[in-house]
Design a protein around this nucleic acid. Structure first.
Lengths: 145, 145
DNA sequence: TTAAAGATGCATGTAAAATACATCTTTAAA
DNA sequence: TTTAAAGATGTATTTTACATGCATCTTTAA
């Protein structure tokens, strides 16, 4: 069971921007800091922008900043929004071929469990991922590499 | 976010055997009923056998039966046991390269959410997946195909 | 002794995800 | 007004986990 890198990287970008505050950060800068693919990050940022999580400014001296305060960005909401495919088991999806589906509670049970998972994430915001007392360390880590 | 077919099929096999009761079922029979790969099922059954969920009898007139009562097979326990890789995000795993891990709460938060997911599954057993009143329907479905 | 069952190891196929590449658009500074 | 630095977008390629196939071995009851 995995979350895609796509969602993982989305969260990392938002954390980066949260620490940066009002200052703009470029995609290249973020990709370099995290040592991950700039190309992949572009797609991610594009989506974060279109969904309103970040504000992207094009052109020279452009860059990214967080849209809103870290305390207002909920992790559960974000994951529901970004993680592309939450079809936990085959019978969740469109192309389900499982013959017993009409007589089986698997779907119900897993749907409940997924909801529990997401509700736990609903209890946290971006601010919780970066406690105040660890922000200095965070800055160190992203500058060192 | 997905559970592997491996785990999905494991659950289906156990449900099949639960309905069959004391009678033995062969892998071929189960694969045919569900219209899934017999080869893949063999691997799955082998693991279910080695982990003690089923009892496999080799040789002529052999087959499979459930080891224990459906009420005693817990879904959460099973998923923890069978689902190969519960590293939800990169920082859960061995080869983690995320530079901010030491200053980041992501791991903690997702670990909590995963635990909620599994604890919800802990509330159900194999018997709950197949309510008594749907067993007749179940039998119909696996024989029709 | 033979046929029907599961066990095992290795090879291959497949689809989703990740990444790369190329080109376009926007914008501020020189 | 041109140029360079930024993001936007679409297509192609690579990678990887997962699923499946195939061949051979072992067990066991008829």
């Amino acid at each position: 069971m995995h979350i895609t890198r796509y969602t993982d990287y989305s969260l990392r970008v938002l954390m980066y921007l949260a620490v940066k505050g009002e200052a703009l950060s470029t995609i290249k800068e973020i990709a370099d800091s995290y040592q991950i693919s700039k190309n992949h990050l572009m797609k991610i940022v594009q989506q974060l922008n279109s969904k309103g999580y970040v504000i992207a400014t094009r052109g020279k001296n452009g860059g990214l900043r967080l849209n809103g305060k870290p305390e207002d960005i909920n992790i559960g909401v974000l994951v529901r929004d970004i993680e592309q495919d939450l079809t936990l088991v085959e019978c969740f999806g469109e192309g389900n071929t499982c013959v017993i589906t009409p007589a089986c509670q698997l779907k119900t049970v897993f749907a409940e469990a997924l909801e529990c998972f997401l509700q736990k994430l609903d209890q946290y915001t971006l601010a919780d991922l970066l406690p105040q007392h660890q922000q200095a360390k965070f800055v160190q880590l992203i500058n060192l590499n």
